[in-house]
Structure formats: structure tokens, C-alpha cells
Nucleic acid binder design. Structure first.
Length: 580
RNA sequence: GCGCCCGUAGCUCAACGGAUAGAGUGAUGGUCUUCGAAACCAUUGAUGGGGGUUCGAUUCCCUCCGGGCGCACCA
């Protein structure tokens, strides 16, 4: 639609100014965007932007030019897509006609679950790395954002015609595993660990970290254990393998608990173990690597304000930087990606800036083909989340608490509901996930139970409720939508038009999400759609509407709305129950 | 010291350089014998300070104030 409007406008400019028009269109850009309510469905700033480009302006000022352009556009809108094209304060506002919106309505119904999907992505590959868990650490509420944002992006990118590939990039390598090995060997109890592996291993790691704090020399023992692991020591390898096994099984449990898509790849950092030497050699051959005072190898980025980036420590062990270089290269070679993305909190911005910069210096287009989808990180009222200090809220507790609260509400509001448990868990997950998804992903926020588990206002359950109410109506009327054109179109109420306008915007919203990696746009849209819908049926009866034609039209309207809410929620990884 | 992010209503958050800065929550008042009150309606209230660029700035630039994060051998 924006494309169509741009063409109308370009054509109009050329017509108004036969001499300069074509040239100006070729060299300038103007916007077509969705304005605030009251200014039509689309608005363009073409008149204001283009006015000063003219040597001999066809009008005396931008508003006058806007008026001229609006007139010409109207003349060329042969399909009568718009009921009005008007200029106001220099803008040109396009209002979609009820006939167009009505056709759109049936398009939604016909396409059903596929409505909003596109081949926008042209099957290009997008790698999305998220939910980066560490071996031997239970995921907690701080991992939630990466998980739900990454999961939503996966779904949205696939829907938009990209080939999206997920990778958890499991943390299974590095000094911390040396520390864990050292802890297990000196303090571990095998039978205890076998009972509840991840929790017990985490306890060991926490305990050793505390010891190191008071006795820093112990750290070297941990580093030595990692060195042994890296050099292939059999005992360390076996233990490490065991840690990975139990941890991966545990992560799978969490994935299901949160209702996330299965992961395509779980390539741990250790996967790149044999791929680091080649990258190091490549960077060295490109003259990027220097040797430091104690023998460490690094890339100097001081001049670019990015400090130094250590690749190999003075004890010969590799760093995660080097592993990330190998990761980039592996992904590039293996998948020839269009975009390589990392859904990681913004404390790692510096790391990714270094990574992308160095790859650029080595001749890869990393600063354009890779994106750090940075997240503001979550803290608790008592301060930052800290595994060491034990101030963590486990995902299990979070989900359990949410289910408890949602079940209590169901008991109170809809005690006759069948499958209460199932619905309660769908509603609970909706509340938790939507809470994270609805914030701009960069926003830092403080987690509080009551906010994260709210069921009223701009929340996941609000959207589910709007959806379930529509199904309530459809159950009541007992008929489905008649074929388009089987009844005459009747004049629409303001509230009906408001809903139709919203329906039309869905595909454009999805496009924006893929351009900016911001799922909160979709949340905002679905919330506004649901609000518009709620307002609509406060004013317009459906099942009790006496006029059969109006009734049919409204059935189509709510059916299409339910479809979009359902599609939208699905893209966010949220279930849309028909009753709740 | 250097770098990145942020500052919007009492609170929590939106706003692709665009028009009258939107929601939620809270508070107050109203709406269920009429399709589901997890809802709806009404009232309330905000861009940290100062410069600049622009026809137009919450948005871009500079500066000050305030907050968060990172910066050479953790990941």
C-alpha cells in the first residue's frame, strides 16, 4: 500500500511539474507512514520535503503544493482505494475507503492462519542466537527476555519469508568450567549431583566462586583445570561431557515449560574448539594480531576507542572473543547468512562492537550483516540478579506462581470452564511472556511479581480475553461467515470502521518488526486492535443485531479480528484459547 | 580517564524527524435482567536544564545535571 501511494505521489509530481518533476523524484525521498488517528490511514510529507527542491515551484508554499498533489492523486486513484485524499498543514492524508476495507476483511478470513505472512524475506537466511544458557547453571528470570524475544523474532522472521535458524550458543567452554571442575573434584559429591545435577553443580560453582573471592590464588587452580580440559585430559573431558549431558536435558525442560520453538542448533562454544586456530591464523596473516607484555595475543583497537581485544591469554588458553570470531566465520561459511543476530543483553555491547569491528578489518562485512539485538537487562527490587548472592528467581517458580494466580482467577470468574489447568497455564505463560515482549527490548526494568503477573490492562491475558470473547459471540450466533458479496455492503458505524482500519495495518507492523527487531511493536498493535474491538462491541451488538445484513457484516468483522489476534499471539509465542 | 545506553504523567511503559506527546496502572465517578465486568466510559496528569540544526525535535548535534552498564587475559 505504501508502495502504491508513493507511486501515486511520484506520478502526481511529474504531472504537476513536467520539467523538474522526474528529476526531483529521482533524487529525493519522502515518507509514507501511518499517522495518528484523525489524519487518515496513510500520510505523506512529500509536499514539505520536495517543495524546496523545485527551482520553479508549481505552488507558492508547501501546503499549496500538498493540495495540488492531493487533487492529482485523487484523479489517478482509479481503483478508488481511498475515500478521501486531503491536504492538511502540508501533509497529504489518505483515507482508505470502506469498500477497500471490506474487501480486506474477507481477505483476512480467506487467508486465515496465513494472513500476514509474506515472502518479504525472499528465503534469505537469518541466524538468531538467543537463550544462551550456561552448562551447569539453571536458567532464571534474567534469561527470560533473550528467550522470549528470540523466540518471537524466529516466528516473525519465518512468517515474513525468511529462513530463520536458531542457535542457543551454549556456554560450555572457558575458565568457568575449569573452576567448576576444580570445585567438583575438591568438594563434589557424586551421588548428590546425580540426584539434581544442574542445581548441585551450580551450588558447587557458587561455593568455589565465594572461596576464590577470599582466596584469589585458588582461581589459578581453576584455570589450570580448564587448561587440562582444553588439552584433552581424559578425566576432565569425561566429567565435562557429563555436565553437558545433564544440562542439555534440563534446558529442554525449560524450553517446553516456556513454550518455545525447538532449537535448530545447540552449538556450544566447544564446537568451535578446532576452528579457532584457523581464524587466529587468518587474523594474524592480515596483520591484526599483536603480542602483549606477558605473551597474550590481542587486537589493538585503542585508536577506535574500543580498547584491546584479547584472543589468547598469556597462559595459552583461548578467550570467548576468539570463539565468537570462529562462530561468525562458521555461520558465514555454513549458512551464507543474510543477517547474523545475537539477542544478548547490552552489557555485551562492547564485546560485539569489538567483534564486528575486527571482522570488518579482516575484510568481512560484519558491521552490516551482523546485529547485536541488545536487551536492557532486568534487575530485582533488591538489586541486580546475582547467582553468587543467590538473588535469583527461577523460571520454574515464576511459571508456577503465575499458574497459581491464573487458576485462582479462573475459579472466581469462570468456575465451569473445562480444562482449567490447561487454560490456566496458557494464561500464565501469556502474562509472563507478554510482559517482557511488550517493553521496548532496550528498556531496563525492575522485575516485580505483581507487574510481571498482571492480568489486567495492557497484558497478555487482555489479548486472550478479547479473543475468547469473540469466540463466545461466534458460539452464540452459531453461523460462520457468508461468502464475500453474498450480501450488500451496508454503511459502517464509526466503531466498525475503526476496527477495519486496524486490521489493515497488520502486515505492515510485521514488516517493521523484522526491520527493527522490536517485537513490542506487534504487542502495541495487538493491544490497540483489542481495545478498538472492545470499544466496538460495547456499541454494536452482533448476535442480537436485528438487521440480517448488518449482523453478517459484524460476524465477518469479529471473525477477522479474532484471526489476527490469534495470528499475532502465535507470532509472540502465546496461545489463544477460545474460552478462558 | 575513555566508551555505550538511558532520563517522558505519582508509578510502569509507548511514540518509523511530523500534526493535538499516546497507553497501562493509581485515584475519583459511572456502566452487568441486554453477545464474557480479565471488559467499557468519563475526569486527572508528563518530554531533566541550556544551546544548536530543521519548515517541523521526545527523536539528530553540543553542553550541563542525574541514573545504568562496559573497558586487556570472566563469558
Amino acid at each position: 500500500m505504501k508502495q502504491y501511494i508513493s507511486e501515486l505521489l511520484s506520478q502526481a509530481v511529474e504531472e504537476i511539474s513536467p520539467n523538474e518533476g522526474a528529476q526531483i523524484i529521482a533524487t529525493s525521498t519522502f515518507d509514507v507512514s501511518a499517522p495518528k488517528p484523525g489524519f487518515g490511514d496513510y500520510a505523506s510529507n512529500a509536499a514539505m520535503v520536495l517543495f524546496k527542491q523545485f527551482e520553479k515551484a508549481p505552488a507558492s508554499n508547501p501546503p499549496a503544493l500538498a493540495a495540488m498533489l492531493a487533487e492529482v492523486c485523487k484523479k489517478h486513484d482509479h481503483q478508488q482505494t481511498f475515500s478521501s485524499i486531503e491536504s492538511a498543514a502540508g501533509f497529504i492524508n489518505f483515507t482508505l475507503s470502506p469498500e477497500f476495507l471490506d474487501r480486506k476483511l474477507y481477505e483476512v478470513i480467506e487467508q486465515g492462519d496465513a494472513y500476514g505472512s509474506s515472502n518479504f524475506g525472499e528465503n534469505q537466511t537469518v541466524i538468531i542466537e538467543y537463550f544462551q544458557n550456561n552448562i551447569a547453571k539453571p536458567p532464571h528470570v534474567g534469561h527470560l527476555r533473550s528467550a522470549v524475544v528470540g523466540d518471537a523474532l524466529m516466528r516473525i522472521f519465518r512468517f515474513a519469508g525468511f529462513k530463520a535458524i536458531s542457535d542457543t550458543h551454549v556456554g560450555d567452554w572457558g575458565t568457568q568450567f575449569g573452576i567448576l571442575l576444580y570445585a567438583y573434584k575438591t568438594m563434589g559429591d557424586k551421588t548428590l549431583v546425580e540426584k539434581d545435577p544442574v542445581v548441585e553443580l551450580n551450588k558447587l560453582y557458587v561455593a568455589m566462586s565465594a572461596k576464590i573471592e577470599t582466596e584469589p590464588a585458588l582461581r589459578d587452580n581453576g584455570k589450570a583445570e580448564f587448561k587440562k580440559l582444553e588439552q584433552g585430559n581424559a578425566e576432565n573431558r569425561a566429567l565435562w561431557q557429563w555436565f553437558i549431558e545433564v544440562s542439555l536435558a534440563d534446558f529442554e525442560r525449560y524450553r517446553i515449560l516456556l513454550g518455545l520453538l525447538p532449537f535448530d542448533l545447540n552449538l556450544g562454544e566447544s564446537f568451535y574448539e578446532d576452528k579457532m586456530a584457523a581464524v587466529l591464523a587468518e587474523l594474524t596473516s592480515k596483520d591484526l594480531v599483536q603480542t602483549g607484555e606477558t605473551g597474550e595475543l590481542y587486537v589493538d583497537l585503542e585508536e577506535q576507542g574500543l580498547g584491546r581485544c584479547i584472543l589468547v591469554k598469556s597462559d595459552g588458553a583461548t578467550t570467548y572473543h576468539l570463539r565468537d570470531f570462529a562462530t561468525y566465520k562458521y555461520r558465514k561459511d555454513e549458512f551464507n547468512f543474510y543477517r547474523n543476530t545475537y539477542v544478548v543483553d547490552n552489557r555485551q555491547s562492547h564485546h560485539f562492537a569489538q567483534l564486528f569491528r575486527i571482522m570488518e578489518m579482516a575484510g568481512y562485512p560484519a558491521e552490516t550483516d551482523s546485529v547485536h539485538i541488545d536487551l536492557g537487562f532486568m534487575s530485582l527490587p533488591e538489586g541486580p540478579i546475582s547467582t553468587r548472592k543467590g538473588t535469583i528467581i527461577s523460571l520454574e517458580n515464576l511459571v508456577a506462581e503465575a499458574e497459581k494466580r491464573s487458576l485462582a482467577i479462573i475459579e472466581q470468574k469462570n468456575p465451569e470452564l473445562p480444562n482449567k489447568q490447561v487454560i490456566a497455564s496458557q494464561v500464565a505463560r501469556a502474562a509472563i511472556k507478554y510482559f517482557d515482549l511488550s517493553h521496548n527490548r532496550r528498556t531496563e526494568f525492575v522485575f516485580t511479581w505483581d507487574k510481571a503477573l498482571s492480568f489486567e490492562g495492557n497484558t497478555g491475558p487482555y489479548l486472550q480475553y478479547a479473543h475468547a470473547r469473540i469466540y463466545g459471540i461466534l458460539r452464540k450466533v452459531g453461523t460462520t461467515v457468508k461468502e464475500h458479496g453474498s450480501t450488500e455492503m451496508v454503511a459502517l458505524q464509526a466503531q466498525e470502521l475503526a476496527v477495519l482500519r486496524k486490521l489493515n495495518a497488520f502486515p505492515e507492523i510485521l514488516e517493521r518488526v523484522t526491520e527493527e527487531y522490536l517485537p513490542n511493536y506487534l504487542c502495541q498493535y495487538l493491544f490497540e486492535l483489542s481495545q478498538t474491538l472492545n470499544t466496538f462491541y460495547e456499541a454494536c451488538p452482533v448476535s442480537q443485531e436485528p438487521d440480517e445484513q448488518i449482523k453478517q457484516q459484524r460476524i465477518a468483522l469479529v471473525t477477522a479480528t479474532a484471526q489476527i489476534i490469534k495470528n499475532g499471539l502465535r507470532l509472540l509465542g502465546i496461545d489463544a484459547p477460545e474460552e478462558m
